[in-house]
């Protein structure tokens, strides 16, 4: 059950992020001024990601994957609200750096969760299925968004994606919640014995 919820939340996250990424460039075009600025925006993203991986790795061991993923979803939901209203290139740079950190959180925790949850013997099949569901969600999202931008504005895409992150956050939270409840009742049971 909890593993399925994990897949569900990740699929929603992938849907949301693949909604914005192809169209994100349109926004950059409106705000950015040159190819070198494009380069900077993406370069800063990759660089902050790189720098934050080691730290995030340690954090996930200390406070748990689920909590980090929950933090990621909610932080993304909030950050995306800023995208429609940026007007200057430096603001894009700052957002890109924040997204870099958050992206690292997602990538790292996704993997640690899989590593901790998946049985080693069946790892191939399980991870294959995991990628199937998440990529499937992403593919659907990209196609649907292509139509959506025709009807809505680019701004609206960011708002929808932000809401999706909230949903994935709620799914993760329920996951955490039910796991805790389970743990507590298990503890009770062992105590009863």
């Amino acid at each position: 059950m909890t593993y399925q919820r994990f897949i569900l939340s990740q699929s929603i996250i992938f849907m949301a992020s693949s909604m914005i990424f192809p169209f994100y460039i349109l926004l950059l075009r409106n705000v950015g001024d040159s190819y070198s600025q494009f380069g900077w925006a993406y370069g800063l993203f990759a660089l902050t990601s790189a720098l934050s991986y080691p730290l995030i790795g340690k954090l996930s061991d200390r406070i748990g994957d689920q909590n980090l993923l929950l933090f990621y979803s909610l932080a993304m939901a909030v950050i995306l609200l800023l995208f429609p209203i940026v007007t200057e290139v430096w603001q894009v740079y700052i957002l890109q750096m924040t997204m870099g950190v958050l992206g690292a959180v997602q990538k790292n925790t996704e993997k640690t969760t899989l590593a901790r949850k998946v049985e080693k013997v069946k790892a191939g099949g399980t991870i294959g299925r995991y990628h199937f569901w998440t990529s499937f969600g992403a593919a659907i999202a990209i196609i649907v968004t292509g139509y959506l931008v025709d009807f809505l504005t680019i701004g609206a895409i960011f708002y929808i994606a932000s809401l999706l992150y909230v949903v994935s956050g709620i799914v993760l939270w329920k996951n955490n919640h039910s796991e805790k409840v389970k743990q507590i009742s298990e503890q009770k049971r062992t105590a009863d014995i």
């Binding site: 609200l81 429609p84 209203i85 708002y159 709620i170």
Partner: peptide
């Protein structure tokens, strides 16, 4: 905690949308 988050989020969503509409108009 969830309610608090949702409350704050709605506030942020509303302000962002307001600013966005303002610049778009």
């Amino acid at each position: 905690k969830v309610l608090l988050f949702l409350f704050i989020y709605c506030g942020l969503f509303g302000s962002s949308f307001y600013v966005y509409e303002q610049t778009r108009s």
